[in-house]
Design a protein around this nucleic acid. Structure first.
Lengths: 206, 206
DNA sequence: GTCTATATTTGGATAGAC
DNA sequence: GTCTATCCAAATATAGAC
């Protein structure tokens, strides 16, 4: 008997259904809030009964975890192909990407960056993906001699702040997102400023 | 009959119990998360049965609303008595107060500044209190000719970002809060910078 | 893999006695 | 005002037939 290396249609179908479930979950969460996702609603949305979901995910938290992993993967996959070498252009690019990623899907933002679902903790595997995304950003910072923790933390604070304000106070709008270039300039001015007014001292400061 | 203007002990007792309920709610939320508050647990915590709570609050959301209003009132009441006139000192003071307020009670922060409880919207009365707090800050900005929306929004983004990062990634720590002075300097440098690299142009920019 | 049926728990809220 | 008793709805999850 010849074993023809056929496509595994069963596996394809299965992972297709998994993707369908996650997509439906995304839609429901966007409509009703991340915390109010229910397996009944979710199953009905794709023409199944609730117990059938357990053939694809072992629990509700496993669905959250898959959404978390998917979100982290998107953060990785959709990142700018090349970050400009110029300091200001680079910061603008990174900051702009992060903010637009966060406001493009507030539910995803809540799941990835706020810790607000009572029983949910991402699995080690999922968390590792998010760590990879962070590491790639850190590399660019290191290439520009900006890998001091205070500098990186200040940068992430600026990005988080713009995203948080936009999503909390005016979801879907641009009142804060349009400040990205301005914020990038603010950050770059600060980290390139002279030491007459020491900001984030590279060494002991007094 | 002489009507002696006695203290209304009944009203005192009632508002005392209301305060007790809110304090117990705060404790439970801090322990289990804002979203997982239950009326049964809450009542048990103060030696009552769940239905009795309805003598003090008409619904669970009314409890959330009272917590919201209380938080806003705290933001007002505990604000610095006097904000320094000097620009950098003033920004440092305002930013420092806001951030320490946010990280002092992450649950309160979540309730006031993130919109994450599925069915809850603050009442108009409660929301008005938070507006008052914002207005007072705006006045200081106006006194320094900084009341352009972009400047204020950039400032709130910086404050929110520090608080959000601290509460999400290291609740109770100081990895981000210790950056407050640095962030204040960054902000002030930016808004006082020359127009060679226009930041938040006061007038039309091209 | 999907279903029906159900276990089990839990939640907010109400009725009515005391 | 507080309680007991209860309603009603919803949730996650499992058992077992098909």
């Amino acid at each position: 008997m010849l074993e023809v290396p056929n496509r595994d249609r069963r596996a394809e179908r299965r992972s297709g259904t998994r993707a369908e479930i996650l997509e439906a979950a995304r839609g429901l969460c966007a409509a009703n809030g991340l915390a109010s996702l229910s397996l009944r609603d979710l199953a009905r949305q794709i023409g199944l009964k609730a117990p059938s979901l357990y053939s694809y995910f072992e629990s509700k938290n496993a669905i959250y975890d898959a959404m978390f992993a998917q979100g982290c993967q998107q953060l990785l996959d959709e990142r700018p192909a090349r970050i400009p070498t110029d300091l200001l252009d680079g910061i603008r690019t990174i900051l702009g990407y992060f903010v637009s990623f966060c406001v493009a899907d507030p539910v995803r933002y809540q799941l990835l960056f706020q810790r607000t679902i009572p029983g949910f903790e991402p699995s080690a595997q999922s968390y590792a993906i998010s760590q990879t995304a962070m590491r790639l950003t850190l590399e660019w910072f290191a290439d520009h001699d900006l890998d001091r923790p205070e500098v990186v933390d200040l940068f992430t604070a600026v990005g988080s702040g713009i995203a948080a304000q936009q999503n909390s106070n005016e979801p879907g709008g641009d009142r804060w997102t349009r400040l990205v270039d301005d914020a990038a300039l603010m950050f770059v001015r600060h980290i390139t400023a002279g030491d007459d007014q020491p900001a984030t001292p590279r060494r002991k400061s007094r």
